[in-house]
Design a protein around this nucleic acid. Structure first.
Length: 299
DNA sequence: CGAATTTGACCATC
DNA sequence: GATGGTCAAATTCG
């Protein structure tokens, strides 16, 4: 069992205990404040667990990234590398409150381009790792300010940081912690969506920022690496999702032609503890989390 | 003065 | 032809 596995188990166990306490809280007390704190903590824990898994999955992509590396090393062509990128894992962070801008994610990025994107008010910035040439690090990210909320940056991460990965696993773990602490800050201090994992797929879908916006006051964005969804393996394919979240909380956004060859699924979870119909349905899914237990997680 | 950013051009894909 | 990703010269910044 890897360090990441242990971290995830630890986080999920904490989440389970907190969910139990929340259920008990709701049955026996009327304290909305303590319930709110518990829900915040549960969301933080699941966010962390997902983030750890997301980083762990990066290792599996090293091979495909190496292929791109070989082609890229020629440095002779301005060709787009669409075909390779369709097979790359892509993360999308919808980060809020990043006054320092999209570079504030623990890595050094260098901007190499900017484009006006059709249908978007704001241009997309293209960044690559500062160590691209010194350490042959092929990590790239694209940053675009949300049309609907200028305080939100939509950030797509493509590729891994070889400048981190070629060091010890200890270093990698440290980096992961740094990253989800960043996410937490966005989540818990700004009360805005924190991150979305944009996984690979063959058909195209695009994050609807309008949809995100319309829900961000009710839901906190949750994210999952979809290779687990896609291959039906791991924790049971699509099943885990419907077990954790009720139908109305799991939403596949409508597809459009973004040209990026990327599909996104977003599962959302409540951000506030307004006692409402939505909250009721969410509490029933908390019940599911408690009932499922560890066998479901690791069988 | 070296590093980083800007910006127009180039090119592949659809 | 429209679009988006990348390059690289020019410019700005520290």
């Amino acid at each position: 069992m890897t360090m990441e596995d242990k971290l995830v188990i630890n986080e999920l166990e904490q989440g389970r205990e907190l969910a139990k306490r929340l259920m008990s809280n709701l049955k026996h007390t009327s304290s909305t404040e303590s319930s709110k704190a518990l829900i915040d903590e549960i969301l933080r824990i699941y966010h962390n667990a997902i983030f750890i898994l997301s980083f762990k999955d990066d290792d599996k992509n090293k091979q495909s990234l190496q292929i791109i590396d070989d082609k890229d090393s020629k440095h002779v062509s301005k060709k787009r590398k669409i075909s390779e990128k369709k097979n790359e894992k892509v993360r999308v962070f919808v980060g809020a409150g990043q006054e320092k801008g999209p570079n504030d994610d623990g890595h050094c990025w260098r901007k190499y381009g900017q484009k006006e994107i059709h249908g978007s008010k704001n241009p997309r910035g293209y960044y690559r790792c500062t160590h691209r040439f010194t350490k042959n690090c092929l990590a790239v990210k694209q940053v675009q300010k949300s049309d609907t909320d200028p305080s939100i940056f939509e950030v797509k991460y493509l590729g891994n940081h070889s400048c981190n990965n070629n060091t010890s696993s200890t270093n990698k773990t440290n980096f992961s912690v740094t990253m989800f602490e960043e996410g937490n800050r966005a989540l818990y201090e700004t009360e805005k969506p924190a991150d979305v994992v944009k996984p690979e797929k063959t058909e195209e879908t695009r994050v609807s920022l309008e949809d995100l916006e319309s829900k961000k006051n009710i839901f906190r964005t949750f994210s999952f690496a979809n290779h687990e969804i896609e291959n039906g393996g791991g924790v049971g394919g699509d099943g885990w999702r419907s077990n954790i979240f009720p139908e109305n909380l799991v939403e596949k956004l409508s597809p459009s032609t973004s040209g990026s060859g990327i599909t996104t699924e977003i599962a959302t979870a409540p951000a506030s503890v307004e006692i409402s119909e939505t909250a009721d349905s969410y509490f029933s899914c908390l019940d599911n989390i408690i009932d499922f237990g560890q066998d479901w997680l690791w069988s």
